[in-house]
Each structure stands twice: as C-alpha cells, then as structure tokens.
Write a protein that binds this DNA or RNA. Structure first.
Length: 334
DNA sequence: ATCCAGGTTCGAA
DNA sequence: TTCGAACATGGA
C-alpha cells in the first residue's frame, strides 16, 4: 500500500500532476482526487446542515451545485473524486471551497485537548462522540451572497422547504448549466435527468415581494427585498478580510438577519471559524447538557464562543449534525 | 388539529 | 433589558 503510494507519487511527478502530501489530494485536469478518506466524507459534508445545494445519488455520491458550478463527488479505487461537470473556473477553486488545505485531524486534536484540560464543564463524552460520528466533515467556503440569501430563508423554516425554495429561485432566475458528463458514465443516467441552474445574482434585485412569496418564502419575502436593497450598498469583496466582530455588526444590520443567521453567513460564507451559531437544535442540546433553561440564544452563543474560541465553528457543526441525526433516527443522545 | 422548523422583529412590561 | 406574540407555510 505504502510502496504503491510512493510509486504513484513518482509517476504523478512525471506526468506533471500536482501532489499534496499533507491532506493527500491530487489536482488533475478537471478533477481533484482526495486520498484521505478519514478526513473527507461526502455524506457528512453535505448532510451536516451547512449547505442547501446538493442532490444525493447514494451515500457516497453527491451532485453539488454551488454558485454557478456543478460538481460530482464519487468514490473510485481508493480515493474520492471531486469532478467539475458544469460551469467555468479553475479546478483549484475546489481546494478553498472544500477547505482541503486545512488539517481537520489537528482541529479535532485541539478540540480534544481543550476538553481534556482543567475545569471544562462541557460534556466531554458528547463532544468526542459527535466528532467521531461526523468524521470527514469539512466546512465549505461558499459564496457570500448565496449564503446571505440562503440563511435568510432558513429562519424559522425546515431544511426540506429551504432547499425547495432556493431551488425554485434558481429555476426561475438562474441560467441553465450545461453538463459535461465525459468520464462519469456510471452516473450518467441519473445526471441526464437532472437540470442545474446557477444561483442568480443581479436577477434578484429586479424582483418584488410577490415573486419571493410565490417561491414559498412566506413572511421572509419582505425581509429579503429589504436586505437586497441594503446589500447593494455593501461591497462584499472589500469586506472579506474584516474582523469577525465588525462583519457581524454589518450583517446584523440587514433586515431579517439576527445573530444566528449572521453567524451562519460568517461561518459558511466568510469562513470565520470563531463563531458558534445557536439555533433551536443547539439550544435544546445546550440546555440538556447544562441542565439550564436558557431561552436567550445570543447568551448561549456568547458562552460557547468564549469556551471554544477559534474552534467554535467546527464544534458547532459536529454537535449540530450529531444532535440532528440522532433525533431523526429517534435516539436521545446529546 | 396543533406543533415545529438552522429566527427576527417589535412593542409592552 | 427582557419577554412574548406575530410572522407564512408545509409536513408530521
């Protein structure tokens, strides 16, 4: 295994394929191959609740259509392939999108250290178990505008309906993405039945409240129209590197964007890992563990951010996914 | 039917 | 500052 790997590496050098020793991925023409299977799990990445633009083909195969691109993620031999099958752009964008140069093994070790240390009154068992459960999660770095709209829609809503509303908006305002299915014959029959559309940008700003109501947004339609006006005054590219606190102040000024939605935008759009979004699931879990009855989610978020600091975002994802999946299969952990 | 979903806003206490 | 009703909608 090891020998063949080194041999493989040597061959790749000869044919000029870039090789990354650290996370063990290779950059090919139209795809990236990920060899670290413990640190990359499609099911956990897409179903942990961070993203609303994917279609499951089976447990190991997903179509992913963020922004204006389409990827197919599937297993092959002893690696996963992230293959671009639609849209433009350099394949290297996948590295940032999937956070491939980040070392999640070390992240988990740092979380373990934090938990082991001194008077850490958070439930260690739950935390360790949830990290094991969600192995291979990676926090995607999604388009900021898309995350603003998506998580605005997500408020007081369920995931199924969130996805359906966002898909409807894509179908109505986005452009159809032509697919190149060469090399993915195994999944051709499924993909040929699907239609993928870009996540619209400027088309959003021409719409009125009635349109978004017809997309199923309900009372959120009013928020979205107002937020779109406010977003036009921001230069999203300019503020990418701003500090978390400053960005949070800007985002919470948008109408319909409170602490929780802002934190999701920060975590999944701006890739700020020092935020701990607190939704109903996390609130319930927090109260179960701490035996409190705290209803103020901002307070809970502040407490958890103070505990976990730069690791907050990761911890939140592991716990959210664990809690939600456990409830869905009807066990009572967390 | 009533409750709830990756909440926020706004007015009243 | 804190509390709680209202806000659309569809699924359980």
């Amino acid at each position: 295994m090891r020998i063949s790997h080194f041999f493989n590496k040597f061959i790749l050098k000869l044919i000029d394929v870039e090789y990354n020793h650290y996370m063990r991925y290779e950059i090919h023409q139209n795809e990236i191959r990920v060899y670290s299977l413990d640190e990359f799990n499609p099911k956990h990445i897409f179903e942990c609740g961070q993203v609303f633009c994917y279609k499951k083909i089976d447990d190991k195969v997903y179509a992913f259509y963020p922004d204006n691109k389409v990827f197919l993620i599937y297993p092959k031999d002893n690696f996963y392939v992230i293959r671009k099958i639609g849209g433009t752009g350099n394949i290297k964008e996948v590295i940032e999108l999937f956070d491939l140069d980040n070392n999640y093994d070390s992240v988990k070790k740092r979380i373990e250290e934090l938990v082991k240390n001194r008077d850490f009154e958070f439930n260690k068992q739950v935390l360790l178990e949830s990290m094991k459960f969600g192995y291979g999660i990676r926090i995607l770095k999604q388009n900021v505008f898309e995350t603003i709209v998506s998580f605005l829609v997500s408020q007081n809503n369920n995931i199924k309906r969130i996805i359906s509303s966002l898909d409807k908006i894509r179908e109505n305002l986005g452009k159809k993405i032509e697919l190149d299915l060469s090399g993915v014959d195994k999944y051709r029959s499924f993909l040929e039945k699907q239609k993928f559309y870009t996540f619209p940008k400027k088309e959003f700003f021409k719409q009125k409240e009635e349109f978004f109501i017809s997309m199923g947004l309900g009372y959120r339609a009013k928020y979205l129209v107002k937020t779109l006006e406010e977003v036009q005054l921001l230069n999203l590219n300019e503020i990418m590197e701003a500090k978390t606190e400053d960005l949070r102040d800007i985002l919470t000024q948008l109408s319909g964007v409170g602490r929780k939605v802002a934190d999701c935008i920060l975590l999944f759009g701006f890739s700020k890992k020092d935020v701990f979004p607190v939704d109903t699931w996390i609130r319930q879990g927090y109260n179960e563990i701490s035996k409190e009855k705290e209803v103020n989610t901002v307070k809970i978020s502040n407490v958890l951010e103070f505990k976990f600091g730069e690791l907050s975002g990761y911890v939140q994802q592991y716990l959210f996914y664990f809690k939600r999946e456990k409830v869905l299969v009807n066990t009572d952990k967390f």
